[in-house]
Write a protein that binds this DNA or RNA. Structure first.
Length: 582
RNA sequence: UCCCCGGUUGUGUAAUGGUAGCACAGCAGACUCUGGAUCUGCCUGUGGGGGUUCAAAUCCUCCCUGGGGAACCA
């Protein structure tokens, strides 16, 4: 549709770029067509006060790929104007995470704090124009004078006009002097503010003489104690975007109501007129995307840290085994709109499965082991069987897997009394051992005290080596296994939804939402076994454990003591049948 | 009844006055040495009422309903 201006070549990184024109791209195309702008520049505007989560990934990907699609550039600018909360470690973490996601802004990393002097100059200009003034009202008084939407007796809310501050009509000279002295540190924190002189009766509360500067004696992680006054968001954003020549200042819906103020600052200072466009932020079912909530989970020790594999943070997703490709695919699929929405977490999981199915090497591991004894196996004999590394990718080749008379199989793959439609191992039934032999269950051992099955006995058919049945007999079940003699002990960590509730934020009044965390969201299996080829796995490596799911080697792994996180299970038809039966 | 923005199958998103489509989920089946993967089919939707028009998800209007706004945070 807008072929003359678009330049969509985002094959590898589909992201929020590979799909049709959303309303933002349409607006950008329109601006180019009408000549409002002759180029496109966007910016990722993180505040370095916390870890990036997938909600930020959505916002940043929109910024990045919109610019890319139109042949423009995208800055990574840290909006660091609140020294009380910000830190260099967050800057580094955000840079690492954005790069990992495929948002490469390495040669365009900028800081709002570099524009402090420039912002100060613009503020002075506004004072000289008579549209900004120094106010002596306290924080509480400011709030009170601004007025508020109040519920009346009919439970109807309305917003009465605010009142002018008694200091609103100071002379320009007086304001100039006071503002200079604010900067010089002559006043205590909170004693004075610089305010834009707009309209205390404005129906939009944001426009009722918003604060532009506050006094805050707090060392800044980049400017140290050079400043004791810091600009507020709206003023800072307008100036920073202008300095950088940002054409499209994309942000989430919560800033929609701020747009008139953003535009007011642009108009009054006469700087480059960036266009702000808002979109809906991301919500995902069964998790939370709020820095505050995530912080609480970390502080309360509910999770092991910001990179706990259950966390929706980029670091958490990475540790869980998510790939940047899967995340970008997901972000491309959810689209961009202004509708407040809740995306099903199953879509995210689907994207991971689809990506890993294509790329992850297959391997056999047993989560909950049960001993399988092949009674007619030649004593001491070991067979080396050939296994396919990835049926989706012939170039991945094959590997040898040791087989012998004692194996570990999955406890769930044996049933003393098979439920309906069960076609794995039970007395008298045959199954194929993946890439191995067809075996027939001849019996089992049971601990008379506990009733626990301690071993399953079977016989094998030597003619079925490799899993083929020369007599063409149908064997319905194929199960995975690990040679007991060569088994690699590993720890497996199973993860599930962080919250059982679809919308954890909608917690009933009086209930502490932290208590609603899914107690089964993490399960550690310390007695698992894997085939020997896994010995060389390194943290970050992903595998498909056949029939179980995709697993990622965790950073907690030590040589000889590997740990694997379940990234996502395989689709499990049997689980559905089982569920229906119960 | 203060200001702003929204409402399209269960979920997310297209259709920009002209056949309501796609994906995920769900259901059914085919195939299979992963109950994986793959393939096929099915299911359900324009919040409501008026109006404009040959024709409305789309434009107008009223209503209903959801979200945001009352930080010296961003």
């Amino acid at each position: 549709m807008n072929d003359e201006v678009t330049n969509s070549d985002t094959p590898e990184a589909g992201g929020t770029g590979g799909h049709g024109a959303d309303f933002i791209r349409e607006a950008v195309a329109e601006d180019l067509r009408t000549g409002r702008f002759s180029y496109v520049r966007t910016r990722l505007p993180p505040e370095p006060n916390g870890w990036m989560h997938i909600g930020h990934a959505k916002a940043f990907s929109i910024d990045y790929f919109v610019a890319k699609d139109f042949g423009g550039t995208c800055n990574l600018r840290f909006d660091d104007t609140n020294p009380a909360k910000e830190d260099m470690s967050f800057v580094e973490a955000i840079q690492r995470d954005t790069l990992w996601l495929g948002l490469d802004c390495r040669d365009r990393v900028l800081f709002a704090s570099d524009y402090y002097e420039l912002m100060y100059g613009h503020a002075v200009k506004l004072i000289e124009k008579g549209v900004a003034y120094v106010d002596d009202l306290s924080e509480e008084e400011t709030r009170e004078y601004r007025g508020t939407a109040v519920p009346d007796k009919n439970n109807i809310t309305l917003t009465p006009p605010g009142r002018n501050s008694p200091y609103r009509d100071r002379t320009v000279a007086e304001n100039l002097d006071l503002f200079a002295r604010m900067r010089a540190g002559e006043f205590a924190d909170g004693e004075k503010t610089l305010r834009a002189k707009i309209d205390m009766a404005h129906p939009n509360l944001v426009m009722r003489d918003p604060v532009m500067y506050r006094i805050k004696r707090e060392p800044h992680y980049r400017t140290g104690d050079a400043w004791c006054i810091y600009p507020m968001y709206d003023f800072q954003e307008a100036i920073s975007d202008a300095v950088e020549g940002v054409t499209h200042s994309l942000c989430s819906l919560e800033y929609e109501i701020h747009r008139p103020l953003y535009e007011w600052f642009i108009r009054e200072t006469g700087v480059f007129p960036s266009r702000q466009i808002e979109f809906a932020r991301l919500n995902i079912s069964h998790t939370v995307l709020s820095k505050r909530w995530l912080l609480r989970l970390v502080q309360d020790g509910v999770v092991s840290g910001w990179d706990d594999p259950r966390m929706p943070t980029i670091a958490g997703l990475r540790r869980r085994g998510y790939t940047p490709e899967a995340i970008q695919d997901f972000l491309g699929r959810i689209g961009i709109a202004k509708t407040d929405s809740l995306v099903d977490i199953q879509l995210l999981e689907h994207c991971l499965r689809e990506d890993l199915n294509r790329r992850a090497p297959r391997v056999m591991a047993v989560q909950k082991p049960l001993r399988l004894v092949i009674e007619n196996w030649p004593e001491g004999s070991v067979d080396e069987l050939e296994a396919v590394n990835n049926p989706e990718d012939a170039s991945a080749g094959t590997r040898k897997v040791p087989f012998s008379g004692e194996l570990w199989i999955e406890r769930d793959d044996f049933a003393e009394v098979p439920p309906p439609k069960y076609f794995r191992l039970y007395p008298g039934n045959s199954v194929r051992l993946r890439y191995g032999y067809i075996v027939t269950c001849t019996g089992f051992d049971k601990d008379p005290a506990t009733g626990e099955i301690t071993a399953v006995r079977c016989s094998y058919d030597p003619a079925t080596r490799g899993g083929n049945a020369p007599d063409n007999r149908k064997v319905k079940g194929t199960i995975h296994w690990v040679s007991a003699a060569r088994a690699l002990p590993v720890e497996i960590r199973l993860f599930d939804k962080l919250f059982a509730a679809e919308r954890p934020m909608d917690v009933p009044a009086g209930v502490d939402w932290v208590a609603t965390v899914n107690p089964d969201s993490r399960e550690v299996l310390s007695g698992a076994f894997a085939e020997p080829s896994l010995a060389t796995a390194e943290p970050g490596d992903s595998f498909q454990f056949e029939r179980l799911g995709y697993f990622c080697c965790d950073a907690d792994s030590r040589p000889g003591a590997l740990v694997f996180n379940r990234s996502v299970s395989l689709r499990d038809t049997w689980a559905k049948i089982e569920k229906k039966q119960s």
